[in-house]
Design a protein around this nucleic acid. Structure first.
Lengths: 322, 322
DNA sequence: ACCAATGCGGCCAGATCATGTCCGCATACC
DNA sequence: GGTATGCGGACATGATCTGGCCGCATTGGT
């Protein structure tokens, strides 16, 4: 432990895993004298990390929240947990979080050792049914891989099945990923066709990078989301329904928190809550999260939602003791 | 940029955000000569990070997946995304992931600047209804805070509402957090009562740390999970139901992936799938994720599940056009 | 075949930094 | 008051870091 650089990292790591350390302990761990340790702490402070210290018998050093984030030193298990969380966020449709989740994921996956990557993939499969739906599932693997190639402007090859069912092989320069409702799209420059194309990611197979990196290209139009909107109008249909709950405003908000902020109290003790979803089923799924013992009903203008509802009702009517 | 330590961190950061860099660019960014840059790269390699390099006109440096994880250098947005993902995983009940999610979260929250913490809290509220249910929601804030105090053996105070409704004030030394079915428990040494106690986290209020750190205590028994099991037998009731789907084995597995691995094909083209959940509602919620256009029915031995089903059916029968 | 761009690493001289030791001081808890 | 802790000045020694130079190897394009 003779290199100051190594020590700086180790020190940060130690301060991240146990909040309090005495100088003596730290010096021992780092195999340096107490004086040198103080100098190391001083250096980290100079770098912007807020390390507080307390004198006295119960004293010690502590890494505090500062204005800048220190490098995160995580162990294997934690890295797996982070990767899984990010993949759920990216695929599960967490609104705005999607894009940044992907960029963080790209960073992590780039350096994730192979065995950890396997664990992530295994865990990923246990995750919530939120990722299901009518549409084909988007593979988080593919998404993570594409995020990397977009970032690095690396050409990729894949097979693509067009809406017509025709299957073609493509060689493209990825530009960006956009989530549109339940679907993910890749916007890329198609090398053979010499034009911009959008690809639905669930239609794409046998993806692999070519290792060839290219100069970034200028996408026509404002940004990727705008481009997609122009290219695929109406790609994100929305379904909605209205729930009417017999509960007072306070208990409603206690139960639903920020989720229910759109609800209005239409009469004393009756909350009206308009919910939206990507599929009729998803809209109706809200009913499973209503509190027990509360009177409610649901209504909708939308034929698709009502058709789904009556289908569910018929099925439930047949529920039998096994 | 004259300090080698700073440069090492910056270099890692640069290599994490763009996969490829030429030596010249890097040297320019770090404001050192190309020779020094090579030495820096050499040093990082000596530290165990695998940095590959390619000579030639299209050459450059690249950080690869190695056996060890480099320190993660994330920007603000990414940190927020990570924190949100981890909180969802911890609260949403991702089985084994819970404990490690919490430990990673503790690391991150410890150093998360205040403004970012606000963003995390705001986003957290938009997250999936999975966290709802019959039980009171567990606050991810409280959970994260407790994870920190457990790790650091910091005494905390809180108000606790016993099952009887009696409210007491407690001063405890947190030992560990355990997820039991839908609930989270804190296992701690109660300072005033001089004994070990378990607390349901959703019954706990006005939590704040005292800043006092104490020596770790030895928990009687194997580990925290064992202790809880002895202290609160039968804390995790399970509900179950059986879905019968008219689909062939292949399309079933295509649709459900690893989730459906327990299903068996009881006759040609009929899959039987036993699902479990923490509440009757959660069990039934599976029906919303069944593929469109497939015949199915559901059955259950459990009175609670069947009561919930018929309640839903009645409600759906009343669905009206608004 | 040639050229340009890139990475690699040896060598050197001078400047800089890091280290351990010793010291006195301040602070907090018992 | 005693003890454990953190703070930082001074100093001498030795290690290191840096920039500049060199020739070499590899790669890709002209």
């Amino acid at each position: 432990m003779t290199d100051p650089t190594v020590r700086a990292l180790r020190l940060l790591s130690l301060l991240q895993t146990h909040r309090f350390w005495s100088g003596g302990k730290l010096a021992e761990r780092l195999e340096v004298s107490a004086r040198t340790l103080r100098r190391d702490v001083e250096r980290l402070r100079g770098l912007g990390y807020r390390i507080s210290a307390e004198p006295g018998a119960a004293g010690g050093y502590q890494l505090q929240a500062g204005s800048a984030l220190p490098p995160l030193l995580v162990d294997d298990d934690e890295a797996v947990a982070i990767a899984v969380g990010l993949r759920v966020a990216a695929v599960g449709g967490l609104d705005d979080a999607e894009r940044t989740s992907l960029s963080a994921l790209a960073k992590l996956e780039q350096v994730l050792p192979r065995n950890l990557r396997r664990r992530v993939a295994a865990l990923q499969e246990h995750i919530s049914p939120v990722v299901w739906g009518e549409h084909k599932r988007v593979s988080a693997d593919v998404l993570a891989q594409l995020a990397l190639t977009c970032r690095d402007r690396e050409r990729v090859r894949f097979h693509y099945t067009a809406r017509s069912g025709e299957e073609t092989q493509r060689l493209v320069e990825p530009h960006s990923l956009v989530a549109q409702g339940p679907r993910w799209y890749l916007i890329a420059w198609d090398v053979n066709r010499e034009d911009w194309r959008t690809f639905r990611i669930d239609r794409l197979a046998k993806l692999h990078g070519t290792g060839v990196r290219v100069q970034p290209r200028q996408l026509p139009g404002e940004n990727a989301a705008e481009f997609l909107k122009a290219d695929r109008p109406g790609a994100a249909p929305q379904y909605e329904a209205m729930f009417r709950l017999h509960m007072d405003r306070r208990s409603f908000h206690t139960h639903f928190g920020a989720w229910g902020r759109d609800a209005v109290e239409n009469a004393e003790g009756v909350m009206e809550w308009r919910v939206r979803g990507r599929t009729p089923q998803e809209v109706l799924a809200y009913m499973f999260w209503l509190p027990d013992g509360v009177e409610w009903d649901v209504c909708s203008d939308d034929d698709a939602v009502r058709a789904a509802a009556s289908a569910f009702r018929d099925r439930l009517a047949q529920l039998a003791v096994r």
